[in-house]
Amino acid sequence: MLNGSSRHIPRVSQTQLILRMAAAMTLAMGALFWHGPWSLTALTLGTAALAVAVGAHRHPWKRLALVFVWQVVLVMALYLLRYGAQSLPDGALVAGRLVLLVLPGVLLMRTTHHGEMARLLVRVLPARMGFVLSTCVFFFPTLWSVTVQTYESQVLRGARILPRELVNPLNWGTLVRVICLPAIVSSLALARDVALAAHCRWYGLHPDRTVWPGPNPSDTTGEPRA
């Protein structure tokens, strides 16, 4: 079941946030590109260290673990069907690497305040890219909450999409039809609304913008940024 209730996420300093984001990105990139000996062991240890550092144990983790278990089972089942029993170790390696690719980002999103991440992205990236990325991060909870509402109303209408019912592949089509498609529609509508709101406040009027120095004037110089 999706969880729509609000969780308390402790705030962290900007340095801690930068370190967390850098570590998560390094680990995810490592899972994607580093295939050397001991790479999986090192990445697993690194991800475990990140989980401890961000305090993942203080957040609900059983459902998340279940999702990853299902993903591993699914990938191995596909390897079994396609290449036979001798390919299962290969399937396990690929499934493990996929987990290591996704898990650092998931840990970061679950344990870090989205507003703080958005603020950091605006400060460290070029203006336009920073605005786009920070807006994506900032509006993620809004989109999530709309999706949770849709999920709950569809379950009550009769959709067989409770977690245990999704074990049956016959119900996956329903999930796509009543949750995934509306989520895409909602995200497009949200993107349109956000773009219009930015336009109403003259975003894009000039190729560069000045920068508010912030409550602490030493943060930026206020010079226009392209």
């Binding site: 989205h114 949200l190 406040r201 003259w202 009027l205 560069d208 000045t210 508010w212």
Partner: peptide, 22 residues
């Protein structure tokens, strides 16, 4: 869907930054 920034100050500054106010 119209508040685009994480904090009150950034939100108020957004329009001014776009207008290139010093």
């Amino acid at each position: 869907t119209q508040l685009l920034c994480p904090d009150v100050g950034s939100e108020l500054a957004f329009g001014l930054e776009n207008l290139r106010v010093p």
